[in-house]
Nucleic acid binder design. Sequence first.
DNA 1: CCGTATATGTCACTCAGTGCCAGTATGGCA
DNA 2: TGCCATACTGGCACTGAGTGACATATACGG
Lengths: 198, 198
Amino acid sequence: MTDEGTARGGLRDRTRRTMRAELAALAVRLFTEKGYDATTVDDIAREAGVSKRSFFRYFATKEDAVFSAVETLSERVADDIRACPAGDGPWECLRRVLGRWEREIDASQRRLSDLRLIEATPALRAAFARKREEWRDQAAQALRARPGTELDPFTADLLTAAAASALDAASREWLRSGGTADRGALLDRAFSVLRPGV
Amino acid sequence: MTDEGTARGGLRDRTRRTMRAELAALAVRLFTEKGYDATTVDDIAREAGVSKRSFFRYFATKEDAVFSAVETLSERVADDIRACPAGDGPWECLRRVLGRWEREIDASQRRLSDLRLIEATPALRAAFARKREEWRDQAAQALRARPGTELDPFTADLLTAAAASALDAASREWLRSGGTADRGALLDRAFSVLRPGV
DNA sequence: CCGTATATGTCACTCAGTGCCAGTATGGCA
DNA sequence: TGCCATACTGGCACTGAGTGACATATACGG
């Protein structure tokens, strides 16, 4: 496996990890420029100097190229929830976990234009909802597995769904503000308003 | 336009409304029997005695055939919310509207197998999430347009999202119970737990 | 130098969905 | 009755996502 690329026109010869990341960045750029539907996978592949077949070796679907940066998050849910202080109730725990993610995303990755792109594209919104649903399901399981608390499936389901709603609403409000609002504060506010009667 | 069909093998010559409904019923039956992915639009069309092209004149997408019965609901949101007593807070209003829908759906249409199908099929879950999102958006607007209450976009967004979560969680619990639980009671419980500090 | 694993390209294929056009039935109107 | 507008339909060709099979090149370990 080569460590760095020769960059002969495309993205060939990178590390698999780098390749995936740069392919994703290229895809998002094209989506933002020309629109999601107007950009074919062939376009992306051609621009990257690889074949369409190769694109689908890095991403299962066209949508996945947009979510490549985020998808590692949902794999950490169980650990993050386990890491909550034992004193936390379910809702505080969810708030803590989502708050941390919020700061992470805010600091490192997600740009305003990316969110706009997702919000403006039905296919991406659907894909996003699907990711969110996977996350929610894992979160509900992890929440029930926490020692000291016994939570029935229904309540765990409900609380995680509500937490996801809080995150969504905060995200949309941030989008409406044109990226000027404080995302952490919005999330806090959402969690405060919804604070359930456990 | 003919009023009744001659039923010569397929579903031809029905009223447009009837045609759509029976086509949907046929599609759902095939999806349930053979699985969603394993059933092509051509299969459905052939079984119905029409062309694939005609199928797409009744349904924009393959998924839509499953949601044909529900989709009228989301067009009524604004009216239903407007019909809430003026004394209702936003949350009570949402609870009332969703409670009514719940009873309607429960009484008339949605079967356990249908929900199982949706829950088991990623593409259908995504499509369902999309419908839900459209509904939520309209509900948030309608809620803000209610006279007597001034609701900022963020809160309206948050409350409708939470209400949708309540409905989802109740629906999933009902599914988990194998269809034996009282859906109305579940929805009530969900709304009680989440009762937000408006 | 050789065998193996990995990454890639090419080709052919399925299937969802669309645009276009031509055929057919119906219902109103002169 | 004959004509015309308005649906509704099938057929066909096409785009584009996604997959499977097969061949090839390149690196690495022995």
